[in-house]
Design a protein around this nucleic acid. Structure first.
Lengths: 223, 223
DNA sequence: GCAAAAGTGTTTTCCGTACACCCATGT
DNA sequence: ACATGGGTGTACGGAAAACACTTTTGC
Protein backbone atom coordinates (compact mmCIF):
# COMPACT_ATOMS: atom_id res chain seq x y z
CA UNK A 1 0.00 0.00 0.00
CA UNK A 2 1.50 3.29 -1.14
CA UNK A 3 0.91 6.62 0.54
CA UNK A 4 -1.87 8.76 -0.86
CA UNK A 5 -0.66 11.62 -3.01
CA UNK A 6 -2.60 14.81 -2.54
CA UNK A 7 -2.87 17.68 -4.96
CA UNK A 8 -4.31 20.93 -3.73
CA UNK A 9 -5.65 23.53 -6.13
CA UNK A 10 -6.27 27.06 -5.02
CA UNK A 11 -8.94 28.70 -7.15
CA UNK A 12 -10.39 32.17 -6.83
CA UNK A 13 -13.86 33.27 -7.83
CA UNK A 14 -13.36 36.87 -8.87
CA UNK A 15 -16.45 39.05 -8.95
CA UNK A 16 -16.76 42.59 -10.14
CA UNK A 17 -19.53 45.09 -10.68
CA UNK A 18 -19.75 46.99 -13.94
CA UNK A 19 -21.77 50.12 -13.22
CA UNK A 20 -22.00 51.11 -16.89
CA UNK A 21 -23.63 47.92 -18.03
CA UNK A 22 -25.34 47.47 -14.66
CA UNK A 23 -24.31 43.90 -14.11
CA UNK A 24 -22.34 41.55 -11.93
CA UNK A 25 -19.41 39.83 -13.60
CA UNK A 26 -17.25 36.85 -12.81
CA UNK A 27 -13.85 36.13 -14.28
CA UNK A 28 -13.29 32.90 -16.20
CA UNK A 29 -10.32 31.78 -18.23
CA UNK A 30 -9.70 29.39 -21.09
CA UNK A 31 -11.70 29.16 -24.27
CA UNK A 32 -13.34 25.82 -25.02
CA UNK A 33 -14.48 24.72 -21.59
CA UNK A 34 -13.77 27.76 -19.43
CA UNK A 35 -12.73 27.45 -15.79
CA UNK A 36 -11.98 29.55 -12.78
CA UNK A 37 -8.49 30.91 -12.36
CA UNK A 38 -6.43 28.58 -10.19
CA UNK A 39 -3.01 27.20 -9.43
CA UNK A 40 -1.65 24.05 -7.90
CA UNK A 41 -0.44 24.70 -4.37
CA UNK A 42 3.30 24.46 -4.65
CA UNK A 43 5.19 27.34 -3.19
CA UNK A 44 6.02 28.56 0.25
CA UNK A 45 2.93 30.70 0.46
CA UNK A 46 -0.03 30.77 2.76
CA UNK A 47 -3.33 29.82 1.21
CA UNK A 48 -4.44 33.44 1.20
CA UNK A 49 -1.22 34.55 -0.44
CA UNK A 50 -1.60 31.84 -3.02
CA UNK A 51 -5.18 32.92 -3.71
CA UNK A 52 -3.88 36.41 -4.23
CA UNK A 53 -1.27 35.07 -6.64
CA UNK A 54 -4.01 33.32 -8.59
CA UNK A 55 -5.74 36.66 -8.90
CA UNK A 56 -2.57 38.53 -9.75
CA UNK A 57 -1.74 36.24 -12.65
CA UNK A 58 -5.04 37.09 -14.32
CA UNK A 59 -5.73 40.70 -13.46
CA UNK A 60 -3.97 43.82 -12.37
CA UNK A 61 -5.92 45.64 -9.68
CA UNK A 62 -5.28 47.58 -6.50
CA UNK A 63 -8.55 47.65 -4.64
CA UNK A 64 -10.08 44.32 -3.77
CA UNK A 65 -11.55 42.12 -1.11
CA UNK A 66 -10.42 38.52 -0.70
CA UNK A 67 -11.51 35.77 1.66
CA UNK A 68 -11.62 32.01 1.84
CA UNK A 69 -14.80 30.48 0.50
CA UNK A 70 -14.88 26.71 0.96
CA UNK A 71 -12.77 23.63 0.45
CA UNK A 72 -14.12 21.14 -2.04
CA UNK A 73 -12.82 17.65 -1.68
CA UNK A 74 -14.40 14.88 -3.72
CA UNK A 75 -13.32 12.15 -4.30
CA UNK A 76 -14.61 12.08 -7.82
CA UNK A 77 -14.76 15.82 -8.39
CA UNK A 78 -11.55 16.05 -10.43
CA UNK A 79 -10.60 14.02 -13.51
CA UNK A 80 -6.92 14.03 -12.54
CA UNK A 81 -7.69 11.79 -9.59
CA UNK A 82 -6.53 8.18 -9.47
CA UNK A 83 -6.58 5.60 -6.73
CA UNK A 84 -3.22 6.97 -5.55
CA UNK A 85 -3.95 10.62 -6.14
CA UNK A 86 -6.53 12.81 -4.48
CA UNK A 87 -7.38 16.36 -5.55
CA UNK A 88 -8.66 19.01 -3.16
CA UNK A 89 -9.69 22.50 -4.10
CA UNK A 90 -9.44 25.41 -1.69
CA UNK A 91 -11.68 28.09 -3.17
CA UNK A 92 -11.33 31.79 -2.43
CA UNK A 93 -13.70 34.55 -3.28
CA UNK A 94 -12.74 38.03 -4.40
CA UNK A 95 -14.47 41.28 -5.25
CA UNK A 96 -12.42 43.70 -7.33
CA UNK A 97 -12.95 47.25 -8.50
CA UNK A 98 -14.07 47.01 -12.09
CA UNK A 99 -12.90 50.34 -13.44
CA UNK A 100 -9.27 49.93 -12.49
CA UNK A 101 -8.99 46.23 -13.29
CA UNK A 102 -6.77 45.31 -16.23
CA UNK A 103 -7.16 41.80 -17.63
CA UNK A 104 -3.89 39.99 -18.28
CA UNK A 105 -4.65 38.05 -21.45
CA UNK A 106 -1.42 36.05 -21.50
CA UNK A 107 -0.77 33.18 -21.44
CA UNK A 108 -4.45 32.22 -21.36
CA UNK A 109 -7.46 34.18 -22.50
CA UNK A 110 -9.52 35.57 -19.62
CA UNK A 111 -12.87 37.29 -19.75
CA UNK A 112 -15.62 38.80 -17.64
CA UNK A 113 -18.93 37.02 -17.98
CA UNK A 114 -22.21 38.20 -16.47
CA UNK A 115 -23.26 35.89 -13.65
CA UNK A 116 -26.74 35.25 -15.06
CA UNK A 117 -25.24 34.10 -18.37
CA UNK A 118 -22.60 31.85 -16.92
CA UNK A 119 -21.51 29.23 -19.48
CA UNK A 120 -20.86 25.58 -18.67
CA UNK A 121 -17.64 25.48 -16.69
CA UNK A 122 -14.97 22.83 -16.15
CA UNK A 123 -15.64 20.28 -13.40
CA UNK A 124 -17.50 21.63 -10.40
CA UNK A 125 -16.50 25.22 -11.03
CA UNK A 126 -20.06 26.33 -11.73
CA UNK A 127 -20.99 25.08 -8.28
CA UNK A 128 -18.10 27.05 -6.80
CA UNK A 129 -19.33 30.20 -8.52
CA UNK A 130 -22.81 29.68 -7.11
CA UNK A 131 -21.37 29.20 -3.66
CA UNK A 132 -19.34 32.37 -4.06
CA UNK A 133 -22.32 34.34 -5.34
CA UNK A 134 -24.30 33.33 -2.27
CA UNK A 135 -21.44 34.41 -0.02
CA UNK A 136 -21.13 37.71 -1.84
CA UNK A 137 -24.78 38.54 -1.23
CA UNK A 138 -24.54 37.57 2.43
CA UNK A 139 -21.34 39.50 2.99
CA UNK A 140 -22.81 42.61 1.48
CA UNK A 141 -25.47 42.68 4.14
CA UNK A 142 -23.29 42.83 7.20
CA UNK A 143 -19.81 43.60 6.01
CA UNK A 144 -18.33 46.78 4.58
CA UNK A 145 -16.75 45.07 1.58
CA UNK A 146 -18.41 47.53 -0.79
CA UNK A 147 -16.08 50.28 0.38
CA UNK A 148 -13.04 48.28 -0.59
CA UNK A 149 -14.03 48.35 -4.24
CA UNK A 150 -15.50 51.84 -4.35
CA UNK A 151 -13.26 54.85 -4.90
CA UNK A 152 -11.98 56.63 -1.80
CA UNK A 153 -14.72 59.20 -2.33
CA UNK A 154 -18.06 58.03 -3.64
CA UNK A 155 -21.65 59.16 -3.91
CA UNK A 156 -24.51 57.41 -2.17
CA UNK A 157 -25.95 56.75 -5.62
CA UNK A 158 -22.85 54.76 -6.55
CA UNK A 159 -23.07 52.82 -3.31
CA UNK A 160 -26.75 52.11 -3.86
CA UNK A 161 -26.10 50.99 -7.42
CA UNK A 162 -23.47 48.52 -6.24
CA UNK A 163 -25.98 47.04 -3.84
CA UNK A 164 -28.80 46.79 -6.34
CA UNK A 165 -26.62 45.12 -8.95
CA UNK A 166 -25.63 42.42 -6.50
CA UNK A 167 -28.80 42.07 -4.43
CA UNK A 168 -31.42 42.96 -7.03
CA UNK A 169 -33.48 46.07 -7.68
CA UNK A 170 -35.98 45.49 -4.93
CA UNK A 171 -33.67 44.99 -1.98
CA UNK A 172 -34.49 48.45 -0.67
CA UNK A 173 -35.84 51.85 -1.56
CA UNK A 174 -33.07 54.36 -2.31
CA UNK A 175 -34.18 56.96 0.19
CA UNK A 176 -34.53 54.39 2.95
CA UNK A 177 -31.16 52.88 2.14
CA UNK A 178 -29.77 56.37 2.31
CA UNK A 179 -31.25 57.42 5.62
CA UNK A 180 -30.50 54.10 7.28
CA UNK A 181 -26.83 54.26 6.33
CA UNK A 182 -26.41 57.90 7.26
CA UNK A 183 -27.96 57.28 10.66
CA UNK A 184 -25.38 54.57 11.34
CA UNK A 185 -22.78 57.30 11.27
CA UNK A 186 -19.80 55.72 9.54
CA UNK A 187 -20.20 57.64 6.29
CA UNK A 188 -18.61 61.06 6.38
CA UNK A 189 -19.87 63.76 4.05
CA UNK A 190 -16.83 65.50 2.60
CA UNK A 191 -18.90 68.45 1.44
CA UNK A 192 -17.50 68.08 -2.08
CA UNK A 193 -20.07 67.90 -4.81
CA UNK A 194 -19.84 66.07 -8.08
CA UNK A 195 -22.01 66.04 -11.21
CA UNK A 196 -22.87 62.82 -13.00
CA UNK A 197 -24.53 64.03 -16.21
CA UNK A 198 -27.94 65.51 -15.59
CA UNK A 199 -29.43 65.89 -12.16
CA UNK A 200 -28.50 67.59 -8.94
CA UNK A 201 -24.85 67.26 -7.89
CA UNK A 202 -24.21 64.55 -5.34
CA UNK A 203 -22.19 64.78 -2.16
CA UNK A 204 -19.03 62.73 -2.00
CA UNK A 205 -18.78 60.50 1.05
CA UNK A 206 -15.93 58.70 2.71
CA UNK A 207 -16.11 55.45 4.69
CA UNK A 208 -14.92 55.94 8.26
CA UNK A 209 -13.26 52.68 9.31
CA UNK A 210 -13.08 53.71 12.94
CA UNK A 211 -16.74 54.66 13.22
CA UNK A 212 -17.67 51.29 11.77
CA UNK A 213 -15.97 49.28 14.52
CA UNK A 214 -19.08 49.03 16.75
CA UNK A 215 -20.84 47.23 13.90
CA UNK A 216 -18.02 44.80 13.23
CA UNK A 217 -19.43 41.27 12.99
CA UNK A 218 -22.93 42.51 13.87
CA UNK A 219 -25.62 41.19 11.62
CA UNK A 220 -27.70 43.10 9.11
CA UNK A 221 -25.90 46.39 9.26
CA UNK A 222 -26.76 47.45 5.72
CA UNK A 223 -30.22 46.04 5.30
CA UNK B 1 13.52 20.13 -7.55
CA UNK B 2 11.24 17.52 -6.03
CA UNK B 3 7.47 17.79 -6.01
CA UNK B 4 5.90 19.22 -2.89
CA UNK B 5 4.36 16.61 -0.63
CA UNK B 6 1.12 17.66 0.95
CA UNK B 7 -0.44 16.27 4.10
CA UNK B 8 -4.04 17.13 4.85
CA UNK B 9 -5.45 16.78 8.34
CA UNK B 10 -9.16 16.79 8.94
CA UNK B 11 -9.95 18.01 12.45
CA UNK B 12 -13.36 18.49 14.03
CA UNK B 13 -14.25 20.97 16.75
CA UNK B 14 -16.96 19.18 18.68
CA UNK B 15 -19.20 21.32 20.85
CA UNK B 16 -21.88 20.23 23.25
CA UNK B 17 -24.15 21.87 25.78
CA UNK B 18 -24.45 20.44 29.28
CA UNK B 19 -27.77 21.65 30.66
CA UNK B 20 -27.06 20.32 34.17
CA UNK B 21 -23.87 22.27 34.66
CA UNK B 22 -25.11 25.09 32.43
CA UNK B 23 -22.07 25.30 30.23
CA UNK B 24 -20.71 24.93 26.74
CA UNK B 25 -18.16 22.18 26.25
CA UNK B 26 -15.62 21.33 23.61
CA UNK B 27 -13.99 17.94 23.13
CA UNK B 28 -10.22 17.65 23.34
CA UNK B 29 -8.03 14.58 23.34
CA UNK B 30 -4.58 13.66 24.60
CA UNK B 31 -3.17 14.44 28.01
CA UNK B 32 -0.05 16.57 28.16
CA UNK B 33 -0.68 19.08 25.37
CA UNK B 34 -4.26 18.37 24.37
CA UNK B 35 -5.47 18.77 20.80
CA UNK B 36 -8.58 18.59 18.71
CA UNK B 37 -9.60 15.21 17.36
CA UNK B 38 -8.27 14.76 13.85
CA UNK B 39 -7.02 12.31 11.26
CA UNK B 40 -4.73 12.47 8.29
CA UNK B 41 -6.72 12.43 5.06
CA UNK B 42 -5.99 9.04 3.59
CA UNK B 43 -9.02 7.08 2.58
CA UNK B 44 -11.52 7.20 -0.20
CA UNK B 45 -13.85 9.45 1.73
CA UNK B 46 -15.22 12.90 1.11
CA UNK B 47 -14.02 15.58 3.48
CA UNK B 48 -17.38 15.59 5.26
CA UNK B 49 -17.32 11.80 5.64
CA UNK B 50 -13.82 12.00 6.98
CA UNK B 51 -14.84 14.68 9.46
CA UNK B 52 -17.61 12.40 10.61
CA UNK B 53 -15.09 9.57 11.01
CA UNK B 54 -12.96 11.83 13.18
CA UNK B 55 -15.98 12.38 15.38
CA UNK B 56 -16.97 8.72 15.39
CA UNK B 57 -13.55 7.60 16.63
CA UNK B 58 -13.94 9.76 19.74
CA UNK B 59 -17.61 9.70 20.62
CA UNK B 60 -20.70 7.65 20.08
CA UNK B 61 -23.69 9.84 19.33
CA UNK B 62 -26.75 9.82 17.11
CA UNK B 63 -27.96 13.39 16.99
CA UNK B 64 -25.53 15.95 15.72
CA UNK B 65 -24.87 18.80 13.34
CA UNK B 66 -21.72 18.91 11.21
CA UNK B 67 -20.39 21.44 8.74
CA UNK B 68 -17.12 22.62 7.29
CA UNK B 69 -15.49 25.44 9.21
CA UNK B 70 -12.32 26.67 7.55
CA UNK B 71 -9.11 25.46 5.99
CA UNK B 72 -5.93 26.47 7.75
CA UNK B 73 -2.83 26.36 5.67
CA UNK B 74 0.39 27.76 7.08
CA UNK B 75 3.19 27.38 6.14
CA UNK B 76 4.66 27.32 9.60
CA UNK B 77 1.53 26.24 11.45
CA UNK B 78 2.52 22.59 11.82
CA UNK B 79 5.76 21.22 13.25
CA UNK B 80 5.71 18.24 10.86
CA UNK B 81 6.37 20.57 7.95
CA UNK B 82 9.67 20.55 6.08
CA UNK B 83 10.79 22.23 2.89
CA UNK B 84 9.39 19.26 0.95
CA UNK B 85 6.29 18.74 3.04
CA UNK B 86 3.36 21.06 3.56
CA UNK B 87 0.53 20.48 6.05
CA UNK B 88 -3.00 21.75 5.57
CA UNK B 89 -5.83 21.41 8.02
CA UNK B 90 -9.44 21.24 6.95
CA UNK B 91 -11.44 22.01 10.08
CA UNK B 92 -15.04 20.96 10.64
CA UNK B 93 -17.37 22.05 13.36
CA UNK B 94 -19.90 19.84 15.12
CA UNK B 95 -22.61 20.21 17.73
CA UNK B 96 -23.66 17.00 19.45
CA UNK B 97 -26.36 16.11 21.94
CA UNK B 98 -24.67 15.97 25.33
CA UNK B 99 -26.96 13.54 27.13
CA UNK B 100 -26.63 10.72 24.64
CA UNK B 101 -22.95 11.18 23.85
CA UNK B 102 -20.61 8.42 25.01
CA UNK B 103 -16.91 9.25 25.09
CA UNK B 104 -14.66 6.57 23.57
CA UNK B 105 -11.63 6.68 25.83
CA UNK B 106 -9.49 4.30 23.77
CA UNK B 107 -6.88 4.52 22.39
CA UNK B 108 -6.45 8.10 23.57
CA UNK B 109 -8.03 9.89 26.51
CA UNK B 110 -10.72 12.36 25.50
CA UNK B 111 -12.55 14.86 27.67
CA UNK B 112 -15.08 17.65 27.62
CA UNK B 113 -13.68 21.00 28.68
CA UNK B 114 -15.73 24.15 29.25
CA UNK B 115 -14.99 26.69 26.55
CA UNK B 116 -14.17 29.53 28.97
CA UNK B 117 -11.55 27.32 30.67
CA UNK B 118 -9.91 26.06 27.52
CA UNK B 119 -6.32 24.92 28.25
CA UNK B 120 -3.37 25.60 25.99
CA UNK B 121 -3.80 23.39 22.93
CA UNK B 122 -1.42 21.93 20.41
CA UNK B 123 -0.39 24.14 17.51
CA UNK B 124 -3.09 26.49 16.27
CA UNK B 125 -5.94 24.41 17.67
CA UNK B 126 -6.99 27.07 20.16
CA UNK B 127 -7.48 29.44 17.24
CA UNK B 128 -9.59 26.82 15.47
CA UNK B 129 -11.79 26.47 18.56
CA UNK B 130 -12.30 30.24 18.71
CA UNK B 131 -13.23 30.25 15.05
CA UNK B 132 -15.68 27.43 15.64
CA UNK B 133 -17.17 29.13 18.68
CA UNK B 134 -17.82 32.24 16.63
CA UNK B 135 -19.48 30.16 13.92
CA UNK B 136 -21.60 28.35 16.47
CA UNK B 137 -22.98 31.61 17.82
CA UNK B 138 -23.70 32.92 14.35
CA UNK B 139 -25.35 29.73 13.20
CA UNK B 140 -27.61 29.67 16.19
CA UNK B 141 -29.12 32.97 15.16
CA UNK B 142 -30.39 32.03 11.74
CA UNK B 143 -30.20 28.26 11.52
CA UNK B 144 -32.26 25.58 13.24
CA UNK B 145 -29.24 23.59 14.42
CA UNK B 146 -30.57 23.60 17.98
CA UNK B 147 -33.31 21.15 17.01
CA UNK B 148 -30.76 18.65 15.80
CA UNK B 149 -29.33 18.26 19.29
CA UNK B 150 -32.54 18.60 21.27
CA UNK B 151 -34.76 15.58 21.86
CA UNK B 152 -37.59 15.02 19.38
CA UNK B 153 -39.92 16.59 21.93
CA UNK B 154 -38.63 19.46 24.02
CA UNK B 155 -39.91 22.29 26.17
CA UNK B 156 -39.41 25.93 25.32
CA UNK B 157 -37.46 26.21 28.54
CA UNK B 158 -34.95 23.66 27.29
CA UNK B 159 -34.65 25.48 23.98
CA UNK B 160 -34.16 28.79 25.75
CA UNK B 161 -31.54 27.29 28.02
CA UNK B 162 -29.57 26.01 25.04
CA UNK B 163 -29.57 29.50 23.57
CA UNK B 164 -28.53 31.23 26.77
CA UNK B 165 -25.67 28.84 27.40
CA UNK B 166 -24.23 29.53 23.97
CA UNK B 167 -25.14 33.19 23.49
CA UNK B 168 -25.08 34.40 27.08
CA UNK B 169 -27.79 35.19 29.60
CA UNK B 170 -28.71 38.55 28.18
CA UNK B 171 -29.32 37.62 24.55
CA UNK B 172 -33.07 37.85 25.06
CA UNK B 173 -35.85 37.85 27.62
CA UNK B 174 -37.47 34.43 27.96
CA UNK B 175 -41.00 35.60 27.28
CA UNK B 176 -39.96 37.59 24.24
CA UNK B 177 -37.92 34.66 22.92
CA UNK B 178 -40.95 32.51 23.46
CA UNK B 179 -43.53 34.66 21.73
CA UNK B 180 -41.24 35.48 18.82
CA UNK B 181 -40.57 31.81 18.14
CA UNK B 182 -44.17 30.74 18.50
CA UNK B 183 -45.32 33.46 16.11
CA UNK B 184 -42.94 32.11 13.46
CA UNK B 185 -45.07 29.00 13.43
CA UNK B 186 -42.60 26.17 13.01
CA UNK B 187 -42.89 24.90 16.56
CA UNK B 188 -45.81 22.55 17.05
CA UNK B 189 -47.33 22.17 20.50
CA UNK B 190 -47.94 18.46 21.03
CA UNK B 191 -50.28 19.12 23.95
CA UNK B 192 -48.26 16.76 26.13
CA UNK B 193 -47.14 18.21 29.42
CA UNK B 194 -44.03 17.39 31.36
CA UNK B 195 -42.84 18.28 34.84
CA UNK B 196 -39.25 19.29 35.56
CA UNK B 197 -39.12 19.39 39.35
CA UNK B 198 -41.01 22.31 40.82
CA UNK B 199 -43.02 24.71 38.72
CA UNK B 200 -45.85 24.52 36.30
CA UNK B 201 -45.69 21.67 33.79
CA UNK B 202 -44.35 22.68 30.38
CA UNK B 203 -45.74 21.87 26.98
CA UNK B 204 -43.66 19.62 24.77
CA UNK B 205 -43.00 21.05 21.33
CA UNK B 206 -41.84 19.53 18.09
CA UNK B 207 -39.82 21.27 15.35
CA UNK B 208 -41.72 21.29 12.06
CA UNK B 209 -39.13 21.04 9.31
CA UNK B 210 -41.64 21.84 6.59
CA UNK B 211 -42.98 24.94 8.27
CA UNK B 212 -39.42 26.21 8.64
CA UNK B 213 -38.70 26.18 4.91
CA UNK B 214 -39.77 29.80 4.30
CA UNK B 215 -37.08 30.89 6.76
CA UNK B 216 -34.32 28.81 5.22
CA UNK B 217 -31.24 30.99 4.75
CA UNK B 218 -33.10 34.07 5.94
CA UNK B 219 -31.17 36.12 8.45
CA UNK B 220 -31.95 36.57 12.13
CA UNK B 221 -34.76 34.10 12.46
CA UNK B 222 -34.20 33.35 16.11
CA UNK B 223 -33.09 36.68 17.48
C1' DG C 1 -48.73 29.17 51.80
C1' DC C 2 -44.68 29.87 49.19
C1' DA C 3 -41.20 29.24 45.80
C1' DA C 4 -40.39 27.93 41.20
C1' DA C 5 -41.13 27.49 36.55
C1' DA C 6 -44.51 28.07 32.60
C1' DG C 7 -47.15 30.98 30.07
C1' DT C 8 -49.87 35.53 28.81
C1' DG C 9 -50.42 40.22 28.11
C1' DT C 10 -49.31 45.24 27.92
C1' DT C 11 -46.86 49.32 27.12
C1' DT C 12 -43.42 51.96 25.07
C1' DT C 13 -40.23 52.71 21.83
C1' DC C 14 -38.09 52.20 17.70
C1' DC C 15 -37.43 50.82 12.98
C1' DG C 16 -38.58 49.39 8.12
C1' DT C 17 -41.58 50.59 4.39
C1' DA C 18 -43.81 53.23 1.22
C1' DC C 19 -44.52 57.07 -0.28
C1' DA C 20 -44.82 62.28 -1.45
C1' DC C 21 -42.24 66.03 -2.19
C1' DC C 22 -38.46 69.59 -2.73
C1' DC C 23 -33.69 70.76 -4.83
C1' DA C 24 -30.13 71.57 -8.28
C1' DT C 25 -28.30 70.54 -12.42
C1' DG C 26 -27.95 69.51 -17.91
C1' DT C 27 -30.17 70.04 -22.28
C1' DA D 1 -39.31 74.03 -19.27
C1' DC D 2 -38.61 69.66 -18.19
C1' DA D 3 -36.28 65.52 -17.49
C1' DT D 4 -32.93 63.56 -14.39
C1' DG D 5 -30.92 62.26 -10.42
C1' DG D 6 -29.99 63.97 -5.38
C1' DG D 7 -31.92 64.70 -1.07
C1' DT D 8 -35.64 65.42 2.85
C1' DG D 9 -39.78 64.44 5.44
C1' DT D 10 -43.81 61.99 7.01
C1' DA D 11 -47.34 58.58 8.18
C1' DC D 12 -48.23 53.94 9.17
C1' DG D 13 -47.71 49.14 10.64
C1' DG D 14 -45.15 46.02 12.99
C1' DA D 15 -41.49 44.32 15.67
C1' DA D 16 -38.18 44.49 19.77
C1' DA D 17 -37.51 45.43 24.75
C1' DA D 18 -38.97 45.74 29.32
C1' DC D 19 -41.81 44.19 32.62
C1' DA D 20 -46.13 43.12 35.14
C1' DC D 21 -49.07 39.52 35.88
C1' DT D 22 -51.46 34.88 35.95
C1' DT D 23 -51.25 29.72 36.12
C1' DT D 24 -49.86 25.28 37.84
C1' DT D 25 -46.92 22.50 39.94
C1' DG D 26 -43.57 20.68 44.24
C1' DC D 27 -42.52 21.20 48.90
Amino acid sequence: MTALQITVDVVTVIFSVDPEANRLLVLVCGGELPRLPGLVLAEELSLAEQAYQVLATKVQVEHLYLEQLYTFGGPGRDERETSQRRCLCVAYFALVQYQETVLLLEPQPVQWVPVPQLPVLWGDHAQIVQYGYQRLRNKLEYSPIAFQVLPELFTLGELYQLYTIILGEDFSDYSNFRSRLLKLGFLRDTGQKVCRGAGRPASLYRFDQHAFLPYQDKPMVFI
